[in-house]
Amino acid sequence: MSFLSIRNLSARLKGRPDQILRRVSLEVAAGEVRGLVGESGAGKSMIGKAILGTLPQSVEITGGQIILDGTDLLSLPTAQRRTLIGAKCALIPQDPLTALNPSRRIGPQITNRLVDILHWTRADAEKRARDLLAEVQIPDPERVMRSYPHELSGGMRQRILIASAFAAEPKLIIADEPTTALDVTVQKQILKLIAAMQARHGTALLFVTHDLGVVSKVCQSLSVLYAGYVLEDSTIPDFFHTPKHPYSRALLAATPKYTDPDGSLTPVSDAVIAATRAEVEAADRSAHV
C-alpha cells in the first residue's frame, strides 16, 4: 500500500462546470520520489493543495479519495485533517520570497511548530533548526536564525524553507516548482540539495515541475498531467525510453536532453494538443454516463 494514494480525485470551480481535476489517480510509495509534470495551468498545484488541504475557497472537490497512510483525508473534519497533515506532510513552496512571514525572525519560523504542536522544548527545537540549517549549507546558522526574511537572498530563503520542511521529519514532502522562482545559477544547487536531503532522510517526495529535465534527474516515477487529467503514469526509465502517450512523446521532443543540451527541439504541435484535448473530453463524457 502506497503512503499516499489519490483515487479518482475530481475538482471544479464552485458553481461552474469546468473541471480543474478529472478523476486524478496517483500513488507515492514511502520514500519514493514521484514527478508531477504538465504545462502551466494543468492543475499540478491544485493536486498539491488538495493533499495539503489548502485549496482556494472557490475550488470544490467533487469526488474521489486522498488516502494518506491509510486514512482518507477527505472524510476527516478540518481540524483533524490539519493535525494529520501537519504531522506527516510538509510543503516546499514555489516562491521563497513570499513564503516566509516578513515580521518574524527565521528561527521561530522553523522552531515554532516543533514547540507549539509537537511539544518539543525550545532548546531542542533550536538545536534541531541549527543542525538543519547547517545541513542545507547555510553558513552561520545562528545569525540566520536571528535574521528577518528581507535580510536574506532568495536562494538562502529557499534553503531555509527546505530545512523547515524537513524539521518535523515528515513522511511526505510536496515540492511545488521549488526552483522556478530562483535565479538560474541557484536553481541547480537547490535541486541537488532537495535530492540530497530526500535521499538522506528517506522522505517520499511529490515533485511538481514543468521541466522534464529536472524530473529525469530527481525522480523515480512520474505522472503526466494535462487539463487536470493524468495522461501517463510511468517509471522514469520507461518514460524516457518508451513514452506511452503521444503527448508525452511530444513533450520529450520539446525538452532539452540532459546528454545533449544543445540538440534540436520541436515544440508540442497543435495537432497533438488537439488530439489530447479530445481524448480528455471523451474520457469526461464516458465517465458521466
Partner: peptide, 17 residues
C-alpha cells in the same frame, strides 16, 4: 491568501492560530 499563511496551515496549526 499569502503564501506564508498557507504554509502555516500545512504545519498543523488551527485556523484561529
Amino acid at each position: 491568501h499569502l503564501d506564508y499563511v498557507t504554509l502555516a496551515r500545512t504545519k498543523g496549526y488551527s485556523e484561529t492560530h
